[in-house]
């Protein structure tokens, strides 16, 4: 319940999972291939995680391993973890993996997450301190949300350290009133 209001947690649970219905369900329009509002037992449907999880607990569906943890991704991570585009696969790769692991029979997901995070973590921190702004922003696009948080924390820590050494204005306009960029609609 601690994460009930957590926006990131809610968005993570929106990630789709493919499931196979073990039981039939009537009166619901979640299977796009069905003509009627009826899901047959044995039909394969893409469901958001929050629904798949609860139905799995009640043994109404069986869950397949999501695409972002497939063999191709694993091989890429083994080859060069730092340059794999995890964001396009799943912006909450690690959180989603942690939620998925208990649901599927595959026991290697935990190990995959750990090894991916360990090797990428080093790269994120190095880039955060050394990369110029443009190079950094290109690097950004392949990071997951968690890694972006780390990247920004590392950069702001460095910036505050420099500011502390040099000194500077201590008062600033409230960030909400600052208009650096136009809001992208």
């Amino acid at each position: 319940m601690a994460k009930y209001y957590d926006i990131d947690d809610i968005i993570t649970e929106e990630e789709t999972v493919s499931v196979i219905f073990q039981k039939a369900a009537s009166g619901v329009g979640i299977d796009p291939s069905a003509e009627m509002d009826f899901v047959e037992a044995g039909s394969k449907v893409e469901l958001p995680f929050w629904l798949a999880h609860e139905l799995h607990l009640r043994q109404a569906v069986s869950v397949n391993v999501p695409l972002c943890f497939n063999q191709k991704t694993r091989l890429e991570i083994q080859a060069d973890s730092a340059s794999v585009d995890l964001r396009s696969r799943c912006p909450f790769f690690y959180e989603f993996g942690c939620k998925m692991a208990p649901l599927v029979a595959d026991r290697t997901i935990g190990f995959l997450l750990l090894s991916a995070f360990k090797s990428r973590y080093k790269e994120v921190l190095t880039k955060a301190h050394t990369a110029s702004f443009e190079a950094g922003s290109k690097f950004w696009t392949i990071l997951t949300k968690e890694e972006i948080n780390l990247y920004e924390t590392a950069q702001s820590a460095m910036a505050s350290f420099k500011k502390w050494r040099i000194g500077g204005a201590r008062f600033q306009i409230a960030s909400i009133l600052r208009r650096k960029r136009k809001p992208t609609e």
């Binding site: 009537s26 619901v28 979640i30 609860e54 109404a60």
Partner: peptide, 20 residues
């Protein structure tokens, strides 16, 4: 635990999710 039960369950879960 028939098909209607699971249909109702899905609607219930969707309702709780939207509330959240």
């Amino acid at each position: 635990k028939n098909a209607d039960h699971h249909g109702a369950l899905i609607h219930h879960l969707a309702l709780v999710r939207n509330k959240r």
